[in-house]
Design a binder for these strands. Structure first.
Lengths: 355, 355
DNA sequence: CTGAAAGCGCTTACAG
DNA sequence: CTGAAAGCGCTTACAG
C-alpha cells in the first residue's frame, strides 16, 4: 500500500479526508489536518504527479519550448536562462512547475510541440523563436491550450505575445546616429527564420525614412551570432564605394569582430566609425570603447510571459486580470562611447592606412 | 467521451483492444490494428500522458536539472544546449522525453529536486553542477530513482557519473608549457561550489608535481565566467614579484580580457606570455593569436549521460549493458599559437613598457 | 466534519 | 485475437 492510502491506513481515516487535508480544503477539522500533515511529513509523502494530474485534469506545469541549434552554430542561451528565472518567479507563487522543452536540432519543431500538446502534458505553453508564419500558433489554438509567444508572428488571429521593444531601441539608435550627422547607416540582421529579424529590419528602414534617409539594401548584412562575422561585415562595409559611417548590430557579440577588424583596417571604433549594439549581453559589457546598446530585463520579460500565460488559465486568471496580453518589454539605452563620433571620411582613412 | 473510449466506440471494439493496437502489442489482428491506427490518426488522438504514466507506473520522461544563476553572473548555457541535443539523440530512440528542469536562482537546489523526485514526475534524472558534497545524490539514491551526474562528487558511494576529462587536458597543457620551458605557470579556477573546480585545480597541482615544479598558491586565481575578469587576473599576475610566464584558463572567455590586458601592459600573448584555455567555446574560437585549448564533444557527452542513465532503467537496460557508468569524456587538444612561446622576461617587458 | 463511491484515461492479466 | 474487469493514486461531489 502506498501513497495516500498508506497515510489513510496509518491514521485510521479515509483517503478522501487525507486528500482534503493535504489540499487545504476548508472543511477539515484542524486537528485532523495537523495529524495528516505531520504524518505526511514523517513518511516523506508527496502526491503522485500522474494520479493528481489525471484526477484534476490539470498538470500544474507549463512548458517552455526552445530550439536547440546545431552545435556549430551558436546560441542565445544566456538570454533564455534569464527569462526562465523570471517565468519561475511567477509560477512558483502558484506551485506551478516550469518544464523546459528543448526541441532537438534534427527534429521538426511542429511535430515536437504536437507531442506534448496532444498528450495534455502541460497546462500551458510558452513558445520562443517565433517565425513570421508559424503553424505552431494554430496548433495551440485549435488544441485550445493556453499559450503565449516570446515574439510576434504575422498570424492575423489574436493570441498573446510578449516581445522586446525592438522598435523603440532602433528608433533611439537611429536618432542618436543621425543627430551626430550620420546618413550612411548600416545594419546587421539575424540569419534564420525567426521573425524578430524582420521586425528589426523594418524598424531600421522606417526610422531611416523618418529622417529622410533612403534605404539602401547594400547596407544590410545578414549575420549569425558569432563574433568573427563582425570581421566579414567590416570588410564588406569598407568595400562599399560609398561606405557607411555607422552600424547597428542585432547581435552584440558581432561587435568583438567589428572592433577588431576596424582597427586592423586603421579605423578606430567610436572615433572614426560609430557602432551601436542591440542588447547589453554580458559578453560585450567590457569592450573598449564601451558599446552603446540597450538593456532588456530578462527577468521582467519572463515575468510578463508568465503573467500573460496565467491570465488565460481559468484557475489563475483572476490574479492576472490586467496583465498585458500583447506587449513589448521596454529597452533602456545604455549610452557608451562606441557611437560618440560623427561620420568620418572612411575612404580616406582606409587609403592612408594602406599606404 | 474522450480519449481511447472515443476511439473504441467509433470502431465498435473494446478499449483494451484499442490500447493493445496502439501500443504495438503482438496479439492484435493486423486488420484491427490498421483500423485503430487509421482512426487515431484521423481523430488526432494521442494518449493522455497522466493516465498512461499512472497505469504504467512510468512517465517515459527524464529530467535534466540545471541551475539558473543570478542574472548578473553569467552562464555556461551554451554548454548545456549542446549536451541536451546529445541526450535527446539517445532518448528519442526509445520515445522518451527530456524535461529540462531549471532550478531558479533563489531556490534551494535540494528542495527543488525533491519535489520532482517524490512525486514520481520523471523516470530518471540527470544532475549538473555537482558539488563536492552533494546531498542530492543521497536523495536520489534513497528514493531509488535512476540517475547520472554530469560531474563527480566526493561521495564514497557508487553511482553513475560522466565528466569531462579535466585530468588529461590539464596534463597535456602542462606538458606543452613545460616543454617550452615554462616553470611559473598560473591557473584560473572557477568560483562557486561545483566540484569540477577542485578537480581542475588538483590536476594542475599534480601535473606541476610530476615535473618537479613546486605548487605556489599565489598563482591560483579564482574567476567567474566573465571576460573582464581576465584583466584582473593579468594585473594580479604581473604584480607578482616573480610573475608567471604562462596561464591555464578554466573559463575560456576569460582569455578575451587576458589578451586585452596583456597587450595594454605591453605584453603580446603567444609571444611574451603563454595562454592555454580549457574548452574551445565558440566565443573564443576567433581570437588572435588562436588559443590553444581542448575540444569536447558536447553531443558525445550528452549521449554518454543518456546511456549511463538508461542502463539503470529496467525497461531499457538491456540495450546499454556495456554503457560506461563512470567515465570521463575525452578532450582533444586544439593547438593554437597562444602558447607558442617560451618564458619571456615579463618583468623587463613591463619596465620597458612603463618607461 | 468525514466516509463511501465514482471517476480521471489509460494498461494489463485473465478468460474465452 | 478480443472483451470484461480490475487497478494505477489521486480528487470530488454526495450523503450523512
Amino acid at each position: 500500500m502506498r501513497g495516500i492510502a498508506r497515510l489513510a491506513k496509518e491514521l485510521g481515516i479515509s483517503t478522501g479526508t487525507v486528500s482534503r487535508a493535504l489540499n487545504g480544503k476548508p472543511d477539515v477539522n484542524e486537528d485532523t489536518r495537523r495529524r495528516v500533515l505531520e504524518t505526511a511529513q514523517r513518511l516523506g509523502y508527496a502526491p503522485n504527479h500522474a494520479a493528481r494530474a489525471l484526477a484534476q485534469g490539470m498538470t500544474r506545469s507549463v512548458g517552455f519550448m526552445i530550439e536547440l541549434e546545431q552545435e556549430s552554430a551558436t546560441s542565445s542561451d544566456y538570454f533564455f536562462m534569464g527569462v526562465f528565472d523570471g517565468v519561475q518567479h511567477v509560477l512558483a507563487e502558484h506551485g506551478l512547475d516550469l518544464l523546459v522543452l528543448p526541441c532537438p536540432s534534427n527534429q521538426d519543431h511542429y511535430t515536437y510541440l504536437e507531442r506534448f500538446v496532444t498528450r495534455s502534458a502541460v497546462d500551458g505553453m510558452i513558445l520562443a523563436a517565433i517565425r513570421k508564419v508559424d503553424r505552431r500558433i494554430e496548433l495551440l489554438q485549435s488544441a485550445g491550450i493556453p499559450f503565449v509567444t516570446l515574439g510576434r508572428s504575422h498570424t492575423s488571429s489574436e493570441y498573446s505575445w510578449i516581445d522586446l521593444d525592438f522598435e523603440s531601441a532602433v528608433a533611439t539608435a537611429v536618432d542618436r546616429l543621425v543627430e551626430r550627422g550620420h546618413r550612411r547607416i548600416a545594419v546587421t540582421v539575424p540569419h534564420g527564420e525567426a521573425n524578430f529579424g524582420d521586425v528589426f529590419h523594418d524598424a531600421y528602414a522606417n526610422n531611416l525614412g523618418r529622417h529622410g534617409i533612403a534605404y539602401d539594401p547594400d547596407l544590410v548584412y545578414v549575420t549569425r551570432r558569432q563574433e568573427d562575422i563582425g570581421e566579414t561585415v567590416v570588410d564588406e562595409m569598407l568595400a562599399n564605394p560609398d561606405p557607411p559611417t555607422a552600424v547597428l548590430l542585432i547581435y552584440e557579440v558581432t561587435a568583438i569582430g567589428v572592433y577588431r577588424r576596424l582597427r586592423a583596417r586603421g579605423i578606430e571604433p567610436g572615433r572614426d566609425f560609430a557602432v551601436v549594439g542591440f542588447r547589453d549581453e554580458p559578453t560585450v559589457r567590457f569592450l573598449t570603447p564601451s558599446m552603446t546598446c540597450f538593456h532588456v530585463s530578462l527577468h521582467d520579460l519572463g515575468v510578463s510571459l508568465a503573467q500573460a500565460l496565467l491570465a488565460q488559465i481559468p484557475t489563475f486568471a483572476h490574479h492576472y486580470r490586467d496583465a498585458a496580453r500583447r506587449t513589448r518589454v521596454p529597452t533602456t539605452l545604455m549610452p557608451g562611447d562606441s557611437d560618440a563620433c560623427g561620420p568620418a571620411p572612411v575612404g580616406r582613412l582606409l587609403a592612408r592606412h594602406k599606404s
